[in-house]
Design a protein around this nucleic acid. Sequence first.
DNA 1: AGGACTCTTCGGCACGCGCCGAAGGATCGC
DNA 2: GCGATCCTTCGGCGCGTGCCGAAGAGTCCT
Lengths: 236, 236
Amino acid sequence: MNSHVAHVEGPDLAALAGLLADCTRASFCLALLDGRAWTAIELARHAGVAASTATEHLNLLVAGGLLAQERQGRHRYVRLADPDTAELIETLASMAPRRAAPPCSLPAVSRSRALARARTCYDHLAGALGVAITKAMTDRGLLDWEQGLTLTGDGTAWLGELVIALPPAKRRPPVRSCLDWTERRPHLAGTVGAALCRHAFDSRWITQIGSSRAVALTDDGRLALRHHLGLTGDFT
Amino acid sequence: MNSHVAHVEGPDLAALAGLLADCTRASFCLALLDGRAWTAIELARHAGVAASTATEHLNLLVAGGLLAQERQGRHRYVRLADPDTAELIETLASMAPRRAAPPCSLPAVSRSRALARARTCYDHLAGALGVAITKAMTDRGLLDWEQGLTLTGDGTAWLGELVIALPPAKRRPPVRSCLDWTERRPHLAGTVGAALCRHAFDSRWITQIGSSRAVALTDDGRLALRHHLGLTGDFT
DNA sequence: AGGACTCTTCGGCACGCGCCGAAGGATCGC
DNA sequence: GCGATCCTTCGGCGCGTGCCGAAGAGTCCT
């Protein structure tokens, strides 16, 4: 990275951090936190740069192993390389300073309100809704925070009632806490968080708002959350 | 960071990553992972830059909240701001690419061997020794990896036998897995990892080698590890 | 075939950032 | 007090890097 030797053995921290040290590349990664694959031009428009610029950034991110790509016809789809990468970006984002500039236009305000209320975070739920679900699961003894975050026996049974199947345990932990940007409190991630989110979409408890990461709670969803978790909040 | 607007609300990922995106600053942070406070000139010499350059970097890192400083007479002591920061840097380091250049000189080789064998990692034990202890604790049922990493009842009792007291649970989890750079396998971090490391120093199971992060296992330490964990390895 | 669209390559520009050394302030030890 | 040491400030330099637009390759649709 620098011209200097830096003569150090060990991990090249600067190279990895350098990939995220650019506003445009960071903006790409945050956008990709929704877990979907984006085309190059979508990301370019999102970040407000020329397509050629986006190409260069994507080349760097892919070469650095943060992004995986897939070419389909004239499209170049990119997504975060794996859940580890997503968690790294989440962690970094939760520790990063907030940006100064407040969103002033009316549509921008309502958009950020919707995001703060309920959104996806890579493959699980975040925002006030995600935090509330996590809290309700804790209160009902489905999650335990005593020794780090764990799923209790009741929690396993509860997932069984909902007919939510978990993939066999591999590198990714079943439950993991992820610090929420807007609520500043933890919400549920890991394979259980992902499975729960997928179930919520499949059962139409929630629906995506437009093409953003924001989600809306349906009437079915409100009933289901009250029934399964005793959640009475509104989140509209 | 960039001249461009980047018009995005939310966390300023690039600003945080930018702090670590420089070889010299990264080298500082990795050095500080030993958990000690270093003076500005020590870090400058370590990274091979002028004192004035180190000052500028330290100003950035302190302003960015990654480092805490303390002035004592003519010395400026800096250390990592908190365990969260240390964990962030560990995580980043474990995902970063290895540096190409192999250490060739004889002292450099023996130094890196010593580091690979046993060293501190912020406030807990790492290297072959750290990984072996973690594995032994798992084999004896003191740690459980089923639902993320947890300390078992036996584990709590075992700590009691050793008269190792834990601080009251706060934000930092009691046990946490930290991926080892050299072994590529997890070792024990968190408050239990820290308490165990402190106990090992206090009981003279291990001693610091010179002023590096490398540690040497004493004869007492070898006996203790065999007695308490059934560990028979050498680690000299 | 032709137009629309996506992506890539290339040259060129400008700014930021990391580096240094010299000079000066602050503190310690003798 | 005096030199030694640690740190900081400042000016100056050069390279890297992020940006763009123009041109072109590849793909899809009609």
